[in-house]
Design a protein around this nucleic acid. Sequence first.
DNA 1: CGCGGCGCGGCAAACGTGTGCATTTACCGG
DNA 2: CCGGTAAATGCACACGTTTGCCGCGCCGCG
Lengths: 345, 345
Amino acid sequence: MTDPHPPAPTRRVSIEDIARAGGVSHSTVSRALRDYPLISAATRERLQALAREMGYTPNAVAQSLQRRHTGTIGLVVTSISDPFFVDVIEGVEEVARSAGLSIFLNSSHNDPAQEIAVIENFHRRRVDGVVAAAARSGDRYAARLQRINVPVILINDQAAADRHLFHSVAVDDQAGAMLAAGHLLELGHRRIAYLGVSNRPKSNDRRLAGYRAALASAGVPVCDELIAIAPEELMAAGDVAAGQALGPRLRDAGATAICCHNDMVAVGVGLTCAVPGDVSVVGFDDNAIARYVTPPLTTIAQPKREMGRLAIEMLLALLDGRAVESRVFQPTLRVRASTAAYSRG
Amino acid sequence: MTDPHPPAPTRRVSIEDIARAGGVSHSTVSRALRDYPLISAATRERLQALAREMGYTPNAVAQSLQRRHTGTIGLVVTSISDPFFVDVIEGVEEVARSAGLSIFLNSSHNDPAQEIAVIENFHRRRVDGVVAAAARSGDRYAARLQRINVPVILINDQAAADRHLFHSVAVDDQAGAMLAAGHLLELGHRRIAYLGVSNRPKSNDRRLAGYRAALASAGVPVCDELIAIAPEELMAAGDVAAGQALGPRLRDAGATAICCHNDMVAVGVGLTCAVPGDVSVVGFDDNAIARYVTPPLTTIAQPKREMGRLAIEMLLALLDGRAVESRVFQPTLRVRASTAAYSRG
DNA sequence: CGCGGCGCGGCAAACGTGTGCATTTACCGG
DNA sequence: CCGGTAAATGCACACGTTTGCCGCGCCGCG
């Protein structure tokens, strides 16, 4: 692998240059710029002024080499265009910047090869920590993450098994699904369907479990024909397509309401079914789009931005040597217009 | 500014360690790992194997210090949650990764202070180049960007004046607006309004100009009461709110169709007006949401992802010493269901 | 047998910064 | 005037790589 990029043309000004111009050693300049207490106020002022007028900008890579950390963190998501992640990213970016951390952003597209490439890259770059909102379950993945030997925060990880291995912030999927199903039960629905996805198996399982629990505790039997999980080949076309394809099928099977794994599949069923006329629909996530579709989507809201913020705050704590505890957020029901009371007929 | 992070606990394995274990000098290891031709095949194999089993991962920050570049680029957008940018970011990320570049992502929120902080940060980190999808017009901003002395690519820059100063990829705003207005004229509309924004003044001006040109060339007079630009204080609530507030006003002023500055304001008017019953609406950008609202939005599509890709490709060319030319893309009309033929009454 | 050349690998400097320790300077009290 | 101490600064090494240059063997050829 030869190197395609020639060195930058002009040399930039270093503390060495300032030292020469100021008639001192570079150590003195370093200390003066960092407000080291033992430097006399006079020379400190003088050197800082000199640095300013010479247009000095510290070289973060040299600093990173000497201090043994970089002030960077790696952020990996499955897809940047997934509306769930953009809010998370915003939260992360917000507190990262205010803490002086820079973030390397990468997406993995649920592709194992890319996932390990990303981790490898973070390792090479010597990030101080990583937050992963794309955690595949698994042995090899977890092992890689371990090897780089920095704090890791998982967001809504798909691997329950890793929960005790890494720190995490997550939403309570099961409680969320219970909220959704409970809302529909309260509206008088009895034939309530679940429409899930196959490419986020863990969250899907947990939400399905919540759905089952809600029905059970209301004494409503769950029928297998009212549970549809979009298979991999359908998922390839996207969440919306999955909803479009499977929504009508559930309706025809007699469902009067559908709990969807997320907002995008809910939008999909809205595209092919009369909502809430034929079926009531509740989504999950409360993405921006939920407010703007017609009818506005009843959904389960996760505090996405807050979760991003907390992830970084936990990372900061860990870097500071403080202990942290994983946290699971309680989602909330957001009632809009895609659900209506059951009326027979 | 004292340093909050203690050094990482365990020292990682360096080429020095491998050298010791292999009984050679660290230079030999370095050359062996980089497939330097003058190293004998035997020792090269041996050392590479050794490195592998010792779990060696090259330290990119040390490499960056020595080679005079970092293999990183800075990407700055106004807001990560703006759907326009997420596609751009995806395009950028896609080719950056395949070229082995890592990206620092930052958002500026249209805040001058944050903008310069971001540029400053890129400078400190010694990025090899920056792509800015948040270019404020302006003297001071351009100057800062110049000072860091690396290639800069602007995406849809808001500062026409900078076009010759930096390289850029942009969409032809005026042509896009002409497409939009032309489409409405063809549908028989005559009282066509323009609904713009004040916080992206340049693109707004260019789109407004396109709108005017289309009407003029069709011999339709433009009425001032059919041109509304959402003021700053309204913009603070977001594009959708601006559309919600101003859409009804334009309708009441007699507009039968509205050219919107972008999709989100179009969505806003859809929320408060009967579309396309009372007014036909065309958006701009073709964000994902345009396909899912009711009715699906007729809009002007920009090749966002492609623009992101091209920006990085131009950067790569520049870093390679090749010359590049700025490029302006032609947008295309995407007809969906928010526009209908004019019918009197 | 000697010498030149070549293949292989080591030495050392460099990238820019931080920092422990030694050294200088200044000051002060006796 | 001298010794001592504290304040201010310089020296030198370290962080982990890359790379120009040199040296050492070995081999072949005259």
